[in-house]
Design a protein around this nucleic acid. Structure first.
Length: 572
DNA sequence: GCCGTTTTCGGCCCGACTGTTTTCAGTCG
């Protein structure tokens, strides 16, 4: 662990330990807020520091935390944490991760039974000693044992695409019940985050509808965590947790806003309301005891003098100021994409022919599509004759195709030293060249950055595909100075890709926004291996929206002639 | 510990559900 993540982890640890010590809850929250700020930063703290930037200008970071950041960057920890660790055993932090155990109970366990780790907790629960403690009973003991047995001690996140495959059938199941009016999945799912922790389902229905029964009776429900008249929680097979909230119709908008979040966005909106003597909660907008509105989300924003803000922007990333000043972005939409510049056919590691892909692309509303297979390596080197043959066939195909044009592309590997593994003579004959890193992820930051910069300097280089190499929930991005790569792309005039594969979504939202700010054009590509994956473009678009991108910032919203001009301008 | 166009001190979100209370504390989101 390094850099920002290390800083955030130390702050989270400080928050946990302080909470166990019963410190001022607002002080605890300050640490958690700071951890979140650091994770969402999009820039390396070490770089900001090197640039002499005042860290206290970051939201939620004051003098004290700025000093601690510097200390953690230098030493990996902070004296405050070491000091706390001398008083609070490290194992207590693990206990906090057990569902149902919060700081109060952890402290009680430690004080009364000297329990300071998970093993000790399990032993005491099995021996039936927990129930002797005030506030604990046989049921709690049982729940704790089950949680430890199932290793349900840490939260798991799920890819947006996986969550969608659970959410949509569940929503349909609820809509099928007579009396149900609206079913919306809110939360980070609605904001289009690349991974989601759980689903928040909001439902309005006629009085007396058996919504909760319908919900907990859904066939994929594995366990009912809680069930009440307005709120229930279940765990689906596969581990996704779903909260359902049954709402009165007049509060639907307020609840939709509240449960869409993000938390940080909501706090800012409520603060704005407070200044106008208003109170906003999930039931509506209030002045004193008078309920002013709440039926629609738009009415909630309007009550605090703002236009409706797209869910993708609600991360407390400046969207409220932008809304107030009338400079919210006109976010890119899926229907504005006219092409896809990164697709694999049967000539590479895809499953369909170029003709099949072309017709699928046309059906998906696209006007151009680049075949970007990678020429196979053979014993005698790289087989470029096959690629040339494919390009020849594309010329023939384009004669026959109507409504869509195929482009002659190629995916080329960026070598360890930043060279490209195909000769310039071949690249020059392609309509576009997509560069990828597929080996040597472990280079150090300086070398990895230099490698990418050098590759971009090749005169035929067009797009840096999946620029940071991350695989969500599987593999962290390789260590690279993204800010420098973005600036270099701006100088060089080449594109950066936003890869729409749901496990990539690379570039991440914060870097999309950085690219936008630096004047770099992005390309939203499907990287499809089969016709169905062209649909993945919608995930890319949603991620782009989270990065504040408008159609003007996305190269493949341009007509083909305009796109060709952009590419020509990059070339000698 | 942070923050400030009502404040440099005094705020900082709060309601639902569970399991344990015998009228509510703790946890969670």
């Amino acid at each position: 662990m390094h850099g920002n993540e290390r800083v955030a982890a130390v702050f989270d640890q400080l928050a946990d330990l302080l909470e166990i010590e019963d410190a001022n809850p607002f002080r605890v929250r300050a640490y958690r807020n700071a951890a979140r700020t650091v994770r969402a930063l999009g820039r390396e703290l070490s770089e900001l520091r090197a640039e002499g930037r005042d860290l206290t200008t970051l939201p939620g970071i004051g003098k004290d935390l700025a000093e601690k950041i510097v200390e953690i960057l230098d030493t990996g920890t902070t004296e405050a944490l070491e000091e706390l660790h001398r008083r609070v055993p490290a194992g207590l932090e693990d206990l906090l991760q057990v569902p149902g155990l919060g700081p109060k109970r952890v402290r009680a366990l430690h004080a009364a039974l000297a329990i300071d780790n998970l093993a000790g907790l399990r032993e005491a629960a099995q021996a039936g000693r927990l129930r002797e403690l005030g506030g604990f009973g046989a049921k709690t003991e049982q729940t704790i044992l089950e949680a430890i047995a199932a290793r349900r001690t840490e939260e798991r996140r799920h890819l947006l695409v996986d969550a969608e495959r659970q959410a949509e059938p569940l929503a349909a199941h609820l809509r099928d019940l007579a009396g149900v009016k609206q079913v919306v999945v809110a939360g980070s799912y609605r904001r289009g985050r690349e991974t989601v922790g759980d689903l928040d389902v909001l439902v309005t229905a006629r009085r007396g509808s058996a919504v909760m029964e319908r919900f907990v009776g859904y066939p994929r429900v594995e366990r009912v965590v809680s069930k009440g008249p307005t709120r229930s929680t279940v765990l689906l097979a596969g581990g996704l947790q779903v909260d359902l909230r049954l709402l009165p119709e007049r509060a639907f908008g307020a609840a939709l806003h509240y449960f869409t979040g993000s938390k940080a966005h909501n706090i800012q909106i409520r603060r704005l309301a407070q200044r106008q003597q208003l109170k906003i909660n999930e039931y509506g907008v209030f002045r004193g005891d008078d309920r002013l509105t709440g039926k629609t989300e738009k009415s909630v924003f309007k009550a605090v003098g703002l236009p409706w803000i797209a869910p993708e922007l609600r991360e407390d990333g400046g969207e409220i100021d932008a809304a107030r000043e009338g400079r919210l972005p006109r976010l890119v939409e899926r229907r504005q994409l006219r092409g896809d510049l990164h697709v694999h056919s049967r000539n590479g590691d895809g499953r369909n022919t170029p003709a099949e892909l072309a017709s699928a692309a046309r059906d998906a509303g696209l006007r151009y599509l680049a075949m970007t297979d990678r020429p196979p390596r053979t014993a005698g080197g790289i087989d470029t004759r096959r690629l040339r043959r494919q390009w020849g066939r594309i010329d023939v195909l384009n004669e026959e195709l109507e409504g869509v044009t195929l482009l002659k592309g190629v995916e080329v590997e960026i070598l360890r030293d930043g060279g490209l593994d195909l000769p310039d003579g071949l690249l020059a004959d392609a309509d576009l060249v997509v560069g990828v890193v597929c080996e040597d992820f472990g280079l150090n930051r300086a070398r990895q950055t230099e490698r990418i910069l050098r590759a971009m300097d090749n005169p035929w280089f067009t797009v840096l595909a999946h620029p940071t190499g991350r695989l969500l929930l599987e593999c962290d991005p390789y260590d690279m100075d993204v800010a420098r790569v973005v600036r270099h792309a701006a100088e060089r005039g080449c594109f950066l890709e936003l890869n729409s594969q749901p496990r990539r979504l690379d570039l991440a939202d914060v870097y999309c926004r950085m690219a936008r700010d630096e004047g770099v054009l992005l390309v939203i590509d499907s990287d499809a291996r089969e016709v169905n994956e062209i649909d993945y473009l919608r995930y890319g678009v949603q991620q782009a929206r989270r990065g504040w991108l408008e159609a003007a910032h996305v190269a493949n919203t341009r007509p083909l002639t305009a796109l060709r001009k952009l590419i020509a301008a990059m070339r000698p």
